[in-house]
Design a protein around this nucleic acid. Sequence first.
DNA 1: CGGATTTTGTGCACGCATTCACAAGCGGCT
DNA 2: AGCCGCTTGTGAATGCGTGCACAAAATCCG
Lengths: 271, 271
Amino acid sequence: MARVQRDGGDDSAPTTELPAVRGQGPPAVNGRANGRGAPIPADKARVIPEAAVARLAVYLRVLSGMAEQGAVTVSSEELATAAGVNSAKLRKDISYIGTYGTRGVGYEVDVLTSEIERVLGLTRQQKVAVVGIGNLGHALANYGGFPGRGFPVEALFDVDPDLIGIPVGGLPVNHIDDIPDICATRAIAIGVIATPPTAAQAVCDRLVEGGVHCVLNFAPVVLGVPEHVEVRKVDLAIELQILSFHVARNAEQRASRRTAAARASSNGEVV
Amino acid sequence: MARVQRDGGDDSAPTTELPAVRGQGPPAVNGRANGRGAPIPADKARVIPEAAVARLAVYLRVLSGMAEQGAVTVSSEELATAAGVNSAKLRKDISYIGTYGTRGVGYEVDVLTSEIERVLGLTRQQKVAVVGIGNLGHALANYGGFPGRGFPVEALFDVDPDLIGIPVGGLPVNHIDDIPDICATRAIAIGVIATPPTAAQAVCDRLVEGGVHCVLNFAPVVLGVPEHVEVRKVDLAIELQILSFHVARNAEQRASRRTAAARASSNGEVV
DNA sequence: CGGATTTTGTGCACGCATTCACAAGCGGCT
DNA sequence: AGCCGCTTGTGAATGCGTGCACAAAATCCG
Ligand SMILES: NC(=O)c1ccc[n+]([C@@H]2O[C@H](COP(=O)([O-])OP(=O)(O)OC[C@H]3O[C@@H](n4cnc5c(N)ncnc54)[C@H](O)[C@@H]3O)[C@@H](O)[C@H]2O)c1
Ligand SMILES: NC(=O)c1ccc[n+]([C@@H]2O[C@H](COP(=O)([O-])OP(=O)(O)OC[C@H]3O[C@@H](n4cnc5c(N)ncnc54)[C@H](O)[C@@H]3O)[C@@H](O)[C@H]2O)c1
């Protein structure tokens, strides 16, 4: 199962700048077959499915845990079970970004890590701004997991005068009127919206004005944005409601099974 | 207009062993005698697609906003644009739960609201427990949006002795050793895990022990659970990485377009 | 050196989800 | 009453994602 090879404690360098493609080896034996470590089918502009991108990020996290434990290679089966997916799906996901495995052996942990980081754009740090430093905003600003993964929080904004200037997580809070300026000058790549829903659209507009192309929205509203801006939403109430649906469905199934059982047991008897 | 908010990528639940009873498409004409407000096609397999459930929750929120503004009826087109989806998709989603519209008019806001609430199991309150009262746990415990939507937070847990007994959001923090007992006695339906990743699996096991069938997990780990337990995860780092991927992809596209343009212009071609 | 063994990469089939397009149905108007 | 315009509900087509199954590599071993 989760067999880890302990071999030479390597310091896992988190920020690998180079793709570390080892393609310079022998020329391809076959015109069609690609050697080991093919970056991507060069001419074929392969579009990675959205669902696969999400899973690649999961693989990346699992890989980093394995690297810390000294694993050098990992098979698709191991990685898949650790990530909670089917191994065929994992291999297909990886095949979208190239062929980095060795048949009969598996994947080199560090190679796979760098390649996934490359396609996810994690070789360059993506600066983050958080708007709305309330309950949720505080948690996000204080969270150490983002800078550690290449997402430094570099600006905080709120409208509350009592908050302006106060440092949160080592960073002072700015006024939302400064969003366009500060985002532009600091080259913020991702804006996180943690304001009340009523303020979310206005905040989003200012982020876009400041040149932010990606928005992560925690407010339960549908944001309107220009074509080139990417919005993802995290709606906790909806997550709870989806869970609630499953509760209801299971309860219903149990009830109908109970009814069926009762009917069966009273079979032949007039009710 | 063409401003659409992409839905958050839904995770494939690690426990996808759904038998998915088939048997759709008997040549029998489906019930024609449904007057207005047919609850559901009684015999027909009532499997609502997962993706549709998530959207129904969105419609519900939009509907509640419309009801507050005094709207009595709403057309699929209005509701769809407000929810950021295609109107045909909206109608199909609603058709999964029954036929509650009036042709030529639209849907009655309150009727549609109750029906969606019914299928989502929101007629009964689902009690929630939060484990791990740190940054994120505090925000969740203090958040007023959950009780207001039928998800009262009725238990808090942590391992930190300094926190035990302290009230957060009006509710005292209990020790994690009491999770099974308290969850069972208070009939907790949903457990929210906001502990460090290392503690998440142990916490999850205790929640299951306490009879909790639904878990919302904020810790970046893959949880192993019995068959009958439903887990949804919210992984903010992965959301950021997906956004990062789009940054990278767009940058790449722009770069290649620039290259192509440069080539074209140096080629004497008119762009 | 050849065969056994292991594991990748992917062709293929299937099922779910999305979107289109339109008949059916309903209310209002004449 | 009968027609007309509007909107729903849904068959059908298309596209996407998933998982199986297997050939193609690569290593190991005798
Ligand atoms: N806290 C949670 O657990 C939770 C859960 C689900 C959803 N949410 C959503 O996340 C958002 C934030 O939640 P919260 O609990 O942190 O709320 P909060 O009230 O604690 O914080 C909101 C913050 O936004 C600031 N703000 C208000 N108007 C603003 C504006 N126009 N521009 C900038 N900042 C403004 C306020 O000053 C405050 O600091 C809300 O939309 C909420 O619905 C929160
Ligand atoms: N804060 C964020 O914005 C954020 C963002 C993304 C992910 N997360 C994840 O959410 C989780 C919580 O984040 P946080 O920032 O609130 O962390 P935190 O360190 O502020 O809080 C963790 C809490 O869990 C408690 N705890 C530790 N071990 C426990 C155990 N065995 N049982 C019960 N409680 C235990 C701690 O006492 C602490 O109160 C983490 O897994 C983190 O990776 C947080």
